[in-house]
């Protein structure tokens, strides 16, 4: 075999569209999972709060505290320094969406825990008659605060990504809205799963709401992609990657067919058939969940940097 001399490698990756890998490949998969659980936890908790379903609220809280936070934690290069990102140990919350997100998530975790306890006590008559008024008041305040911080926790992920001018596909104000609406639609799917196990869920009402959210979501995603393709050459490249490139299978099968079309079809069936059978409900829950995983994966995967020398013929 011919012996070849090794030369210093030059860097071609800055003049060609290069996908970010830090937040989706290797250890970056943890960020993907954390992002997915942010959306699922937010959706489930807010929907459960709206429909007053304690088990749904508990599951939403667990998804955030037991899944999202640990995944974020283990992703960090220096996990035990995490406290440095939390006010008052940092003043970076003025500009950093990550610091804000940490704060929102911790605030939510604390307020929701108190709310879960007070709601449980009130629902099971564990409060002394003389204290019912006070506990009810605390419960409502905690519901408001936990709901608010939950919404902020769900939306900050989108803002953290949309802040990055380096990646045109993310750099749009629509991204946080897409994430929140998709999260709420998935929350509606998950609450049906909770209802299948614990009961006490009005499936008909959930399916009605689901139809609206899925429709809005489909429109939002379409608008988002059209907007991104018009925004810049790199944005257009990202959209092509998503629609016909390496991420196309995940997008069409995961996001469109399983995430939107299948749940929509099931909810339309419920419109005519009335109460859905448990297998169909399980299918709806599963397809919603796979849709959530697929959406975040696709968005992270086609996050392509603007080439540093974008006007070169190579691009």
């Amino acid at each position: 075999m011919e012996r070849r001399r090794q030369w210093i490698t030059t860097h071609e990756w800055m003049v060609k569209p290069t996908a970010q890998t830090e937040w989706v490949d290797g250890q970056g998969l943890l960020i993907w999972l954390a992002e997915v659980f942010s959306a699922l936890g937010m959706g489930l908790y807010l929907v459960a709060l709206f429909y007053n379903n304690w088990w749904g609220q508990l599951a939403g809280w667990f998804i955030i505290v037991g899944l999202k936070l640990p995944f974020h934690f283990f992703y960090l290069g220096r996990p035990w320094r995490f406290w440095r990102a939390i006010p008052p140990f940092t003043s970076a919350w003025k500009t950093s969406w990550l610091a804000r997100g940490m704060f929102f998530t911790l605030m939510y975790s604390a307020f929701a825990l108190v709310q879960l306890i007070t709601t449980y006590q009130l629902e099971h008559n564990l409060v002394a008659a003389s204290s019912v008024g006070m506990v009810t008041a605390i419960d409502w305040v905690m519901r408001f605060l936990a709901g608010l911080f939950m919404l902020l926790t769900g939306i900050y992920c989108g803002f953290a990504m949309s802040y990055c001018k380096s990646i045109p596909f993310w750099n749009t104000g629509m991204l946080p809205i897409v994430f929140v609406i998709m999260g709420l639609a998935d929350g509606l799917g998950l609450i049906m799963g909770v209802g299948l196990i614990t009961g006490g869920v009005d499936f008909h009402a959930i399916e009605s709401a689901s139809r609206i959210f899925l429709l809005v979501n489909a429109l939002l995603i379409s608008t988002y992609l059209i907007n991104a393709s018009y925004q810049s050459k790199t944005g257009e490249y990202s959209v092509k990657e998503l629609l016909v490139g390496k991420s196309a299978v995940v997008f069409w099968v995961g996001v469109i067919i399983l995430g939107i079309v299948a749940p929509m079809a099931i909810s339309v069936i419920s419109l005519y058939a009335g109460e859905l059978s448990p297998p169909l409900l399980v299918l709806a829950v599963l397809s919603h969940t796979i849709g959530a995983f697929s959406l975040k994966y696709c968005v992270l995967k086609v996050g392509i940097y603007r080439p540093v020398l974008s006007k070169l013929p190579t691009f």
Binding site: W13, M14, T18, Q20, E22, W23, Y75, L76, G77, R78, P79, R81, F82, R84, A85, S96, L98, A160, Y163, C164, K165, S166, I167, G303, Y305, R306, V308
Partner: peptide, 16 residues
């Protein structure tokens, strides 16, 4: 000594 390794800066740097 203050960096937690979140890599947000790596993503946000337009010059990679």
């Amino acid at each position: 000594s203050k960096c937690i390794g979140c890599r947000y800066c790596v993503i946000a740097c337009p010059y990679q």
